[in-house]
């Protein structure tokens, strides 16, 4: 009986979202590689483009709740239309995962 309860607790811990420190690294990468094009407001070409090709609700990456980490990583590596790819020598796979985690989860932390 006791054993079962402990097991359940461990499982719950494993599914909670990344802690603040995990996202800190992702945030630093986002600021360095993505912010110049994707931050909110005028003067950011990625945001401007998404506002036209999608709509204003999908323009600011970090405000979106519909992005998956797979998608963010894929787009970063392959590029998308006017966004050129980012090579592994610029952001390696591990860094890309941290970056994707930050981008996809940031909306939760601003509510």
């Amino acid at each position: 009986m006791r054993l079962e309860r402990i097991t359940i607790m461990l499982m719950l811990l494993a599914t909670h979202t990344s802690s603040a420190t995990d996202l800190e690294q992702g945030r630093a990468l986002y600021i360095h590689y993505c912010g110049a094009c994707h931050d909110a407001g005028a003067g950011h070409p990625g945001t401007m483009r998404l506002g036209v090709s999608r709509d204003q609700a999908h323009a600011v990456l970090t405000a979106r709740s519909d992005l998956t980490t797979d998608y963010v990583m894929q787009i970063s590596r392959a590029g998308n239309q006017m966004m050129p790819p980012f090579r592994a020598t610029e952001i390696n796979d591990a860094e890309l995962a941290e970056l994707a985690a930050y981008v996809t989860q940031h909306y939760k932390h601003t509510q």
Partner: peptide, 28 residues
């Protein structure tokens, strides 16, 4: 934003704003 990014460049602050030129046509 056009003045702003030029003002940044002329004092050595890097940015990506000029990339918006590719928005002139769709998928530029």
């Amino acid at each position: 934003p056009a003045f702003a990014y030029r003002a940044q460049l002329m004092r050595g602050i890097p940015n990506m704003t000029e990339y918006s030129l590719l928005n002139w046509v769709g998928a530029g």
